[in-house]
Amino acid sequence: MDKLRAKVRTLLSEGQVAGYLGYLIKDSHPLPHLFTPENLEEVDQAVVAPDNARYPLDKLLIPLAERYPEAAFAIQVRGCDERGLNELYKWGQLDPEKVVPVGVACTQEQADYCECPGPWASVVDYGEKCQPVAKSLRVEQVATLAEEDAFQEWLGAFKRCIKCYGCRDVCPMCFCKDCSLEHEDLMSTGQLPPDSIFQLVRAIHMAGRCIDCGLCEETCPAGIPLRVLYKKANALVKDLFDYETGSPTAGPSPWKMLGEEATLETKPM
C-alpha cells in the first residue's frame, strides 16, 4: 500500500490532479472516497477496495468530471475499471487527458472468480500480476445446453427479476440519460416480473461495452447470471467484428460506425 499512497500523495501535493478517487475505511466500512490536497493526511488511510467491496468508481468519476471539466483526477483502477475508462473515453464521457490511473493487480482468487482475461491495470501500483483466465467455463457450460434447455434456464432466471434496475444503476458503462429499459413503447411497465426480454435488451446494450467487472451480478437480488450473458455478448462482438471491448487500441465500437465494408453475410433461412 505504501507505493500506492506515495504515488497518490505526489499527484495531489504536486497539483497534478485535483483529487484522487479511491477507498477509505470509514465508519468501519470500506467506502469510495475523494482524496484532495486540502486533506492530504487522509492519504495515509487510503486502501485498495477489498474484493467483496468493489464499487463502480468510474461511474462516480463521470459526474465529478462533468462538474469540474478543467480538473484532472486520479482514480484507483483494477483491470476491469481501466477497461471501463477506455470505453468511457471512446463514448465521450471522460477525457483521457484528465484522468490518471492508479493501478491495482487483482489476486489470483479474484481473477479466478471473475474468469478475468485481464486482471491488472496497465500500471500496477499495488499487488502482483497473476495468471489471467483466458476462457469462461461458465459461458462454455451454457453453450453446451440444448436450445430448449437453455431457454428454460434463462427464462427461469428472468422470471425471478424484481426489476430493481440494480444491474443498470451499478454499471459503470450505463451513462445514458434516457434508458431503453424505460422506453415507454418498447418495455412494459408496472409489473413483476418485467418483460422476458428485459435482460436481453440490456445484453444488447452491453455488447462491446461491458467491461466485465461483475458488479451487476453481485448486486442482482435474483441471482440472475448476468455476467455469463454479457461475457457472451462481448465474445460475439469479438467473433463477428473483431472488437476487443475495453482495449485502448481496438478503435471505435462497431455500433458507433457503419464501417467501410459489410463483412458479414445473411444467414440462410
Binding site: H29, P32, N52, A53, R54, P56, P63, C164, T219, P221
Partner: peptide
C-alpha cells in the same frame, strides 16, 4: 454520493448485513 452538498446518487452498500450489496427499485 454527495457532490458539493447535493445527493446525486444512491449505491447499494456491499457490506450491509441485511442486503449484502442489493437494493430494490425504491432503494436505488
Amino acid at each position: 454520493e454527495v457532490l458539493d452538498g447535493k445527493i446525486i446518487n444512491t449505491m447499494a452498500a456491499k457490506t450491509g448485513p441485511s442486503n449484502a450489496g442489493s437494493l430494490c427499485i425504491k432503494g436505488w
